[in-house]
Structure formats: structure tokens, C-alpha cells
Design a protein around this nucleic acid. Structure first.
Lengths: 377, 377
DNA sequence: TAGTTTTGTGCAAACGTGTGCATCGTACCA
DNA sequence: TGGTACGATGCACACGTTTGCACAAAACTA
């Protein structure tokens, strides 16, 4: 078989070359079946150097058009695909963007990913996905993995503990890996952020209920601690949404009516809700930190015989898919999730190109549905 | 500054070495701030060759323990991280597993990812995520990207059109990239699959309703076409679940009661449901292709004044998060999604190691909740 | 015809790491 | 003292690309 091996400097007329191509393609189809083909294979078949092939493929205008054409043809025939590791080694690029999130579940995450992917796709970047499950140690490990894998940028989705991992984040930044935070940023971390005006969202929700005539409006928080302390299980968003609610209530002079109940979404214990509904002067409306929480509370109330929105009104936050699927459809505050993902990707790409980037705050929007209605007499 | 540059063959006593280390660390901290440090940096500081450093870091036992220790110390000090591109180039590895899915939304996807990640993490693999939105062209493009990025394996999540892209899939297999399909496989594609016994799931659901005394049970399909033809918008699952329903009905001699309505989940037009409920001898129970569909139908029925489960019973499929959050909580058929993800990852890893792999079919399970109850008199 | 430009290629080094083999020094043995 | 064995390290090449530079041939110019 070795007599088939092409000799190096054996160029010739085009027809001749074509003949050899056919011949050697057969040879190579046998030999290279089990490995990726390289520019050297192409070079050998055409009797040119691999640098010529490289230049031809990259469209270097110094290469004659006939050579370029030959190279293209052989490349196509033997199914050549560039080795991205080798290219990456030379250019110090991986075309990888890391996305670190605390939970892969939920439409917020999905929409942001979708939005980011649509932008990154066009620039031939791929997404390296990590999920930390709110575990700071896992989060740090994943950040280190991302750095080790030499991603060219990192998108941080609501990662509750990133405050505690600011050291790794700085480490990434020292290596000039751009970072963008989607959601809310801890003050320890210095990176451009894309967020929603949660305070405004909270205000919109409360204001909507107030305009419907409700006065006794309760904020449902996943964690009371979040609202006042510096430790935030659910990020700063919770405190911000609550602050918007406060502002609306105070605008109406309802300082004395301000009140919250805590429902842990993981535990789903509804007794605080049941208790407050039993009191005299029970609330007529609820504004929840999240749609999930709002839906749980609403469905629990239904199961106890309350009518929605006749007896009780509910407003959620995030406008997830299911907000419009449950009965009654849930009024919610929407954030432009897809756009946030797109912007995040753009911010990363801009930073990669050396452009400075700063924060971007999106405006939330009220999606009125049937779960909120006029306050009962 | 260049007089600080370490000369190559300038070894010395340990104390001397340590002194130099300190000195040059300072030098290097200045010089290398803007790039990743390499084994050459370590080698230069210690006055050894880079091969020695490489061997020391890899734990080659031919290297003296003092050298190993020195190398480790310097590596730590200058924050050395191996260049994964270079390693990959030598070993022809990327430590990347591609996951291609049609939609990133939904708990099926999320759980499978989670499960896969937990297994892949331990083996230091990362996940390259692509989402094709049920678009065959995008799907093919993404598959090609995955091949180009030299992933070491591909997990295909319910990708409706993979039949049309079997050529690319075969291309990947020719390059010895292992593939696992989670969900259902098209017959054009020859790869190990990990799925649920959808037929059995359908049987369980229908059987559950039959045991509760229901006789007029309707199957809600996202597309009637799916049930009989070869074209499947929603994969083969739909036909399989329907077949399970058929078997249960026939077991009870209810061939004449077999009936379906079509509700497109993207359009959410509920008139077929309304129409069938208006008929005399209206159905008393519904079994839907998916939880999403079941929930929509159930909530629509509630809005028309029907009581669940007093008047109507509903059973879904998939046991998504929201199944237990809606009111009344939805009875559903669960698949072991997390495990399916774990198994998928294991199958990929095994194949990478050259072990043969074949299909795995998981057993579905009924999760009884309040949306299904005894048939009305 | 000799010199200059242009055109098309090849050579060799580089990216950062891994590794077979050669080499060097030392210790041990006869 | 000569030979052998062994432990520790360096050299040089490999992986697949890209790219600065040199160089040859061809095409001009004078």
C-alpha cells in the first residue's frame, strides 16, 4: 500500500492533479477513515505544502485561484474540518461563552439562554452551561472549570452566592475574561449588569391592586430575612420588589396596612396564608415575589373555597409560561427576558472586543389577567 | 528590566533556588500579569526544562521529589493553570459533551441536563448546549457545530426532526463521536436510546381512570396527524401513549368509546374541548399527551364551571413541577427524568471508553393527585 | 540582457503541552 | 579502574494550525 503514498514535491498540470486527487482520495478514504483529516492530508494529495493549504482555505489572496480551487475540492471530498484546538492554540481562542446559573429550571433561565444563544450563534460562539444549584462551593468549582476551559466570557445568571465567590470572579477578570451579570449584582462584584427595575415592578404591581380599590394588600416573600438583612437567599430582587410595594402603599397613605407573609417555595407550607385569611380585616389582595409563589397561594386559596378574583386578587412576578395557563390566568409583572439574554450576549461580545460596558436596567411591564379584579365591598 | 530574565541552566542549592523563586516571581508577576502563565514560566524560574515541569506536574515518578515540590510551589505562586487547548491538541480531547435539544424550556429538559451534569462533573466533562427550536436546519447547523467543536459525545434530547438529519448524525458516528438519544429514536438513526415506556405510561393513565369507574375517556392529542401517520410533530411518544390508552380501553371492551380531541399547545384553542363537553354522553375524563395540555384543558373546564374532579377527571403526562402546584393538583405519569439524564451521561462515557451500549427503557409511574376522582353517577 | 517587481510557494517557528529517547552524573560492584 | 545500573533531567519532536520571511519563477521595465 505504501507505494500509494504521495510524494511531496510532485506538482503538475491541472488534469494531472485531478487524476491524482481521485487516486489518492481512494487511498486516503481507506487510511484516514478513523481520524479527522487535516490540512496535511490535503497538502499531500495536491503535492503542495500545508501552509499553502492553510492560506488557500483562509482565502489568502496571494494563493493562485487554481490552487485555491483544488484545495477546496479536495477538502470537500475528504470531509476536512479544521481542528479547532489547533486554531485555538494559535489564536488563543475557544469560541466558548460560559453560562453559570443556580438552577436550570424555570422560564427566566430558559429565555435568557435562548436570547443569548440567538446572538452568540451568529458569531459562532457556543455555550458552556453550568448549574450550581445555589451551592456556593459548586458555584466556585464551576467558575474555576470555566476559567480552566478558557471560556472567552461568562454570563452569570441569578447566582445567589456570588458575593462569597467574588475572589474567583476577580480571578477571571484578572485573566481578562469579561463577565456580565443578569439579574442583580452583589456589591462585592464589579461587573456590568443587566437587570430589571424590580422596585418599579413592585410599585406597578401594588399600584395596580390599589387602583382596583384594594387596601389590605399583603406581600408574599419567600424569606422574611431577605427584606431587611444583608444576606439574601433570593438575591436583592426580593428586597427591591418589596420596596416598590412599600412605596406604592405609602403613596396611598397606607403605612399601617403594610404587611408580609413568608412562604418558602421549596417547602410550600401554606399555614401563614391560611392564618392571615382567617383574621378579621383579612387582606383582599396579594402580591407575590414570584409567579410560582403567587400560583401556589392562589391555588391554595381556591382549594379553601375562596373565589379569585371575586374574593381575592393575586399578582405575581416574572410572567412565566404557566401564568397564563392556570385558572384563573395570573396577572404578573413581566421582564423582557429574551432581550435580557440578547443584551447579555452582546455585552460579552463587546467586552471581548475591548469596548467598555456598563449597566442596563430594563423596564418591567404589567400583564393584566383575570387573577386580579376590583376589591370586594 | 531584561537583566531580571532568568537564565536557563542556572540551577543551584535549594536555598538559592528559593531565593530566585521569590525574585523572579516578582518579575513574573509584573511581566505575565496579562497572560496565562505556562509551564515555561515555571521552568524558567526554576532553571529546569519545561519537560521536567510537565512531568513533575503530571506526577511522573522519575522526577525527584524536591523538584516536584519546587514546581508545585512555583505553579501555585504564579497561579499556573494548564492550557486545555494544548493538552487537548496532544491527546485529542476536549472534555466536552454536546447536548442538543429542541427547546430549553420545560422540566423534562432541565431534569435531564441536571442528571447528566451530575455525572459529567465528576469526570471533568463540561456541557456544550444547543437549542434548535424544532427547526431542522438549525438542528443540523448545531450538530455540525458540535462536531466542529470536537465534542467527545452528543446527547440528543427529544429532537423531532432528527430523522431528516440522519446524515449529519452518521457523519458524527463516522468520526467515532458517541451519541445517545433521550426520548424516542427515529428508525433512521442508529444510536443507543434511553426512553420511557410510553405505551405503558398511556396504559397506566387510562387504566387509572377506568379503575375509578370512568368509561367515556378522551385522549387529548397535540396533533391528530401524529397518531397514525409517519410524520410526528411531537415525536413517536404521542402515538405510543395513545396506543397504551387504546390497549386499556380495549381491555375493558370499550372500543366504541375510543375518541380523541386535538388541542395545539401553541395555539391553545379550546373549542374542541368545549364542543365535546356539550354533547350528550359527554366524556367524564381526559388523558392528555402532556401535563401542559392537561392543565390548560383542566383550567378551561374550571372556567366554564365544571368541577374537578367531581364532574371531570384529568390525567397528564410528565409530572412537571407545576403539576402539583395547580389547583387541583394534577394526576400525572412520571418518568425518572433525573435518572434518564444520569444514564444518558453514563452511556456516553462508556461509549467513549469503547464499551458497547444498547437501549434502556425506563418504567413510568402514576402520581395520583386530586385532579382525578371517581366517575360521576 | 540585466535589473526590478510581482506572484505564488515553501520553510520554519510559534502556540503550550506531552513523551520517547539520549544523556549526564552518581553510586555500586567486581 | 573499568563496567554496569540507575536516577534525574534535557533534547527534540509531535499534535494541527497560522504566519513572517525567504525564495524561486515569471512578468515586467529600462
Amino acid at each position: 500500500m505504501s507505494n500509494f503514498r504521495p510524494k511531496n514535491r510532485e506538482s503538475g498540470a491541472c488534469a494531472n492533479v485531478c487524476f491524482k486527487v481521485t487516486l489518492f482520495a481512494t487511498y486516503y478514504e481507506i487510511v484516514t477513515m478513523n481520524r479527522r483529516t487535516t490540512i496535511k492530508d490535503i497538502a499531500a494529495q495536491l503535492g503542495v505544502s500545508h501552509s499553502t493549504v492553510s492560506r488557500a482555505l483562509r482565502g489568502d489572496k496571494r494563493i493562485s485561484s487554481t490552487t485555491v480551487e483544488n484545495v477546496r475540492r479536495v477538502a470537500e471530498r475528504i470531509g476536512y474540518r479544521p481542528n479547532i484546538l489547533a486554531c485555538g492554540l494559535v489564536h488563543n481562542r475557544t469560541s466558548l461563552i460560559g453560562i453559570l446559573t443556580s438552577n436550570v429550571r424555570g422560564s427566566f433561565f430558559a429565555d435568557v439562554i435562548d436570547g443569548a444563544q440567538s446572538v452568540l450563534d451568529k458569531r459562532r460562539y457556543s455555550i458552556l452551561l453550568c448549574c450550581s444549584h445555589k451551592n456556593p462551593a459548586a458555584e466556585r468549582a464551576h467558575l474555576e472549570t470555566l476559567i480552566d476551559k478558557q471560556v472567552e466570557g461568562i454570563i452569570l445568571l441569578p447566582v445567589t452566592s456570588c458575593g462569597t465567590n467574588s475572589r474567583v470572579i476577580r480571578q477571571a477578570q484578572d485573566l481578562h475574561i469579561p463577565i456580565v451579570i443578569v439579574g442583580t449584582r452583589k456589591k462585592e462584584v464589579n461587573a456590568p449588569m443587566i437587570g430589571t427595575d424590580n422596585e418599579q415592578g413592585g410599585y406597578l404591581a401594588a399600584r395596580h391592586l390599589l387602583d382596583l380599590g384594594h387596601r389590605r394588600i399583603i406581600y408574599i416573600t419567600p424569606s422574611k430575612e431577605d427584606l431587611h438583612s444583608e444576606r439574601h437567599r433570593f438575591g436583592l430582587e426580593n428586597a427591591q420588589r418589596y420596596r416598590g410595594y412599600l412605596r406604592a402603599m405609602k403613596d396611598f397613605g397606607l403605612d399601617s396596612e403594610i404587611s408580609t407573609i413568608e412562604i418558602d417555595p421549596d417547602v410550600q407550607d401554606m399555614t401563614p396564608l391560611r392564618d392571615i385569611l382567617k383574621k378579621k380585616n383579612a387582606p383582599t389582595a396579594f402580591f407575590a415575589y414570584s409567579d410560582r409563589l403567587a400560583i401556589s397561594a392562589m391555588q391554595a386559596s381556591l382549594s379553601w373555597g375562596y373565589r379569585v378574583p371575586t374574593d381575592l386578587s393575586f399578582v405575581g412576578f416574572d410572567d412565566i409560561d404557566f401564568a397564563s395557563l392556570v385558572y384563573p390566568p395570573l396577572t404578573s409583572i413581566a421582564q423582557p427576558k429574551l432581550d435580557m439574554g440578547r443584551f447579555a450576549a452582546k455585552k460579552i461580545l463587546n467586552q471581548i472586543e475591548g469596548l467598555p460596558e456598563d449597566d442596563l436596567t430594563c423596564t418591567p411591564e404589567l400583564r393584566k389577567r383575570d387573577s386580579s379584579g376590583p376589591a370586594p365591598k
